[in-house]
């Protein structure tokens, strides 16, 4: 990181800004503020922040709508702040193109980790990583090869597609719908049982302990994420 990343915090609660600002500054972020959806859209357009922290419950425009409009012209990473009981809203936000989410109330450390992952992922997107390494597994997306402790792992084409998708978005939550739509096609968006079967098989093949997975992580009720890769 050659310069101080700038983070835009969008929340209508002053209390949130009050504690997030010093915490972000302590982590070497430059902090921008917005309290409404309209203001957020304006600041993203004019100030071009490196990352956005967005509360879904905004007074004027719905947070999901903000994501939808931003995604029309910007791929700035967006981390959503959401309530635990609004699972559906969260998934929609991810489907609209949010990069990650943090449930309220949250520890600042967790938020910082998510922000780092999102920023890093954005870098990856710019300079494609040919090979990803995570917990002793090497995933070569271009050559369609997976090595575990140096040994070749045999994957079915679908298993590989699934793993490749997660790898390309390493560290980021991919919703069930997104995975199904990319790997199996849009007609299978709701067939989550495929996913459970294939994820189970993949874990058997690549995880050291499939019963407590360290590579393919479950985001309960939302989707899956590949653990942060070791660069």
């Amino acid at each position: 990181m050659n310069q101080t990343p700038r983070v835009l915090v969008v929340d209508d609660e002053t209390a949130i800004h009050r504690f997030l600002t010093p915490a972000l500054m302590a982590n070497d972020y430059a902090v921008l503020k917005a309290v409404t959806g309209a203001e957020a859209l304006k600041r993203i357009a004019t100030d071009a922040p490196d990352i956005v922290v967005l509360d879904l419950g905004l007074p004027d425009i719905d947070g999901k709508e903000v994501i939808r409009r931003v995604r029309e012209w910007s791929d700035v990473p967006i981390v959503v702040l959401s309530a635990r009981d609004r699972e559906a809203e969260k998934i929609e936000a991810l489907d609209y193109g949010a990069d990650d989410f943090v449930n309220k109330p949250f520890g600042v450390g967790e938020l910082m980790a998510r922000l780092r992952a999102a920023l890093r992922h954005r870098m990856h997107r710019r300079g494609e990583t040919p090979v990803a390494r995570v917990h002793g597994v090497e995933i070569d997306v271009a050559r369609r090869r997976v090595l575990r402790e140096g040994e070749d792992v045999k994957l079915t084409p679908k298993e590989f597609d699934l793993l490749a998708l997660l790898t390309r978005h390493a560290g980021k939550v991919i919703t069930h719908k997104q995975i199904l739509s990319v790997v199996w096609g849009p007609a299978h968006e709701h067939d989550t049982q495929y996913l459970r079967v294939y994820v189970g098989q993949l874990r058997q093949k690549i995880e050291a302990d499939p019963s407590s997975p360290a590579i393919i992580l479950t985001e309960s009720g939302v989707g899956y994420r590949l653990a942060d890769t070791e660069d």
């Binding site: 915490a23 982590n27 309530a83 309220k104 109330p105 949250f106 520890g107 600042v108 910082m112």
Partner: peptide, 25 residues
Amino acid sequence: SHDFRTPLASILGSATSLIEYRAKL
């Protein structure tokens, strides 16, 4: 639940900031 969550988020956020970054603040 919403009304409880907002102050709780502030308290938790402030407390974790203090714990993790007290040296930097």
